[in-house]
């Protein structure tokens, strides 16, 4: 596993990965659709895949003493490490946001711990689409990214739309009021904190299982690909 990751970071990582990590600064915008920041992680991964393609990475990797399945694993590990590293940056930025800004977010879910659960869900959508579509042929990264971008923005639209609706209808719908008081806010009580941690946990679990399913699907698809 170590050598696979070493190969990915040494030969395949695009420098834009660092640049796009600055997207976490979006968390400091007073009112914003914060989940959009996750899209830029996908963009950085796409750039790395593109550069890998132009460097015949698929062929080089296939010739190493590993199976095709391990070649796919190599990419999934690379993607997961970048995404999990970004989750740490996002976590830090949520605290910075809380220290600097106090207004509620009118454009979606607040920059609160629950947002991390949302980020896991966005990454799940990205992993469920981008990588299997890429491994369908092993080189059409642009097409895979277009499909994943549509899926990610559709998800963000629905997810953030839900929290905008919750904010607007909190006064009349008790469920939305509960959401506003426990999820879409900085946790003011231990129960609210617990709900938000559960939300993060659920996001993490979904991320884990979706990525695992996506990996299995990609292995199956890549097995059929002629390099």
């Amino acid at each position: 596993m170590k050598k696979l990751l070493y190969k990915e970071f040494k030969l395949c990582m695009h420098p834009l990965v660092f640049f796009f990590s600055l997207s976490a600064l979006m968390f400091l915008i007073p009112s914003y659709v914060y989940l959009v920041a996750c899209f830029f992680t996908g963009n950085a991964i796409f750039n790395s895949m593109q550069i890998s393609n132009s460097n015949s990475d698929v062929l080089f990797t296939a010739l190493l003493p590993i199976s095709k399945r391990e070649a796919v694993k190599s990419k999934y590990l690379f993607v997961a490490v970048i995404q999990l590293a970004m989750m740490l940056v996002f976590t830090a930025m949520i605290f910075v946001h809380h220290a600097l800004l106090t207004d509620a977010n009118k454009a979606g879910l607040d920059a609160c711990p629950a947002l991390l659960g949302g980020c896991f869900l966005v990454y799940s959508v990205f992993n469920a689409t981008f990588l299997p579509f890429f491994y369908k042929n092993g080189y059409k990264a642009e097409r895979a990214f277009l499909i994943s971008t549509i899926a990610v923005f559709l998800f963000i639209f629905v997810f953030e739309g839900f929290f905008i609706a919750a904010g607007a209808a909190a006064g009349s719908v008790p469920f939305f009021a509960w959401i506003e008081n426990n999820i879409d806010c900085w946790p003011g009580s231990s129960s609210s904190l617990l709900y938000q941690l559960l939300f993060i946990g659920a996001g993490l679990l979904i991320y884990f299982f979706i990525t695992l399913l996506s990996y299995r699907r990609s292995c199956k698809l890549f097995d059929e690909v002629d390099i």
Partner: peptide, 18 residues
């Protein structure tokens, strides 16, 4: 024709680990 912008020693360093 792989990793055109990488140095030979970088590629060898990766390859030898496998």
């Amino acid at each position: 024709n792989c990793y055109m912008r990488s140095k030979l020693k970088t590629i060898a360093d990766v390859t030898k680990r496998f």
